[in-house]
C-alpha cells in the first residue's frame, strides 16, 4: 500500500511536469493554430540552460530555472519572428504543412546541435535542496516536492494571467477569433509572438524543474513531447485544465494497460503504445470534439 502511495506521488510529480509542458503546447496551438513539433527540444534546451546558468554563472538553482525560462522565451520570440512569421502572410500557401515542417526541422536541428554541443552523455545539475521529506512511510525528495510545487505555481500563474490580465485576455481573444480580436484593436501578430514565447518558456520551465530529478541528455525531450501530444489531444486543445485532466488520464491508462495485459514481458514493451493508442482512439472517435473546438477557450 505504501509502495503504491509512493508510486502515485512520484507519478503525480511527473504528471504535473508533463502538464506544464502540455500547457505550453496548448497555449501555442490555441493562439497560433500550430502544433509545435519542436516542443520536446525546447524542454531539453530549458534543462541545459538552467544547468549552465547554475554551474558556470553560479546562480542559485531556482534562479537557474527562471533564467532558463527567460532565455527560452527570447528564443521562442526570435524563432516565431524569423521562421513562423511568413505564415500569416500570403507567401505561404499551405500553412499547416509549413508549420509542421519548420517546427519538426527545429527538432532535427536542436536535437543534433544538443548532441554536438552538450555531448551525448547525461549531465546532472545540483539539487534545489538536498535531502528528502519523510512523512511516516512516505519518502519524497525535496527536489520532487519543489518541482511539483513550482509546477502548480506556474500552472496557477498561467491560469490567472490568461483570465485576469489584459494581455492574457487578448491572447484568449485571438485564440477565439483572429478577425474579431483585430476589430477591437488587438494586433494578432503580436499575440502570436507572445504565445510562442510563453509556450517555449513553459517547456523550458518543465525541463529545468525535471533536471535535478532525472539527468539531462539531448534526447530527454522525446518522451515528454509525445506524452504532451497525447495529453493535449485527450484533454482538449486550448484548455489548461484539460491538460491536467489529460495528464492524469494518460497515467491511469498506461498503468492499467500494463496491468491488464496478459503477458507481462510484452506488457512492458507495450507501455508506450498504450498512450499512442489512446491518441489514435481519441482522434477517431472525436476528431474535432476534444481536439479542435472552434472557440478553444483558455481556462
Amino acid at each position: 500500500m505504501d509502495y503504491f502511495a509512493l508510486l502515485a506521488i512520484n507519478g503525480l510529480v511527473i504528471g504535473l511536469i508533463y502538464a506544464l509542458m502540455a500547457a505550453g503546447l496548448t497555449l501555442i496551438f490555441s493562439v497560433l493554430k500550430v502544433v509545435n513539433f519542436g516542443h520536446g527540444t525546447l524542454y531539453m534546451l530549458g534543462g541545459y540552460a538552467s544547468y549552465y546558468a547554475i554551474t558556470y554563472l553560479g546562480v542559485p538553482p531556482p534562479a537557474g530555472v527562471v533564467l532558463a525560462m527567460v532565455a527560452l522565451f527570447a528564443f521562442g520570440v526570435v524563432f516565431e519572428r524569423l521562421v513562423l512569421h511568413p505564415m500569416y502572410t500570403n507567401k505561404v500557401e499551405r500553412k499547416d504543412e509549413y508549420a509542421i515542417i519548420v517546427t519538426f526541422g527545429l527538432t532535427v536541428l536542436l536535437l543534433n546541435l544538443g548532441i554536438v554541443v552538450f555531448g551525448p552523455f547525461s549531465k546532472s545539475p545540483p539539487p534545489f535542496l538536498a535531502g528528502a521529506l519523510i512523512a511516516g512511510p512516505l519518502i519524497i525528495t525535496y527536489d520532487r516536492l519543489i518541482a511539483a510545487i513550482a509546477a502548480i505555481v506556474l500552472l496557477s500563474a498561467l491560469s490567472w494571467f490568461l483570465a485576469r490580465t489584459s494581455l492574457g485576455q487578448a491572447l484568449d481573444a485571438v485564440s477565439q477569433s483572429r478577425e474579431s480580436a483585430a476589430v477591437i484593436g488587438i494586433n494578432p501578430r503580436r499575440m502570436y509572438t507572445v504565445a510562442f514565447g510563453l509556450g517555449s518558456a513553459l517547456a523550458a520551465g518543465a525541463g529545468a524543474l525535471i533536471a535535478p530529478i532525472f539527468a539531462l541528455s539531448p534526447n530527454m525531450g522525446e518522451l515528454p513531447a509525445v506524452q504532451a501530444f497525447i495529453i493535449i489531444v485527450l484533454g482538449g486543445m486550448g484548455s489548461v485544465g484539460g491538460s491536467i485532466v489529460g495528464g492524469i488520464l494518460l497515467g491511469v491508462v498506461e498503468g492499467l494497460g500494463v496491468g491488464f495485459f496478459p503477458d507481462p514481458n510484452r506488457a512492458l514493451a507495450y507501455t508506450e503504445a498504450f498512450g499512442a493508442l489512446l491518441l489514435v482512439f481519441t482522434l477517431l472517435v472525436r476528431p474535432t470534439g476534444l481536439f479542435g473546438r472552434p472557440h478553444a477557450r483558455l481556462e
Binding site: V34, V35, D96, R266, A269, Y270, A273, L279, L283, F291
Partner: peptide, 26 residues
C-alpha cells in the same frame, strides 16, 4: 478521411509508433 493537417500528422505519428513497438515486442 476526417483528419487534416496537424491532426493527421499526430495520428499517423502515433500509428507508426505503435507499429514500431509491435515490431520490437513481438
Amino acid at each position: 478521411l476526417r483528419l487534416t493537417g496537424p491532426y493527421l500528422a499526430l495520428f499517423t505519428l502515433a500509428l507508426s509508433e505503435i507499429f514500431r513497438l509491435m515490431l520490437v515486442a513481438e
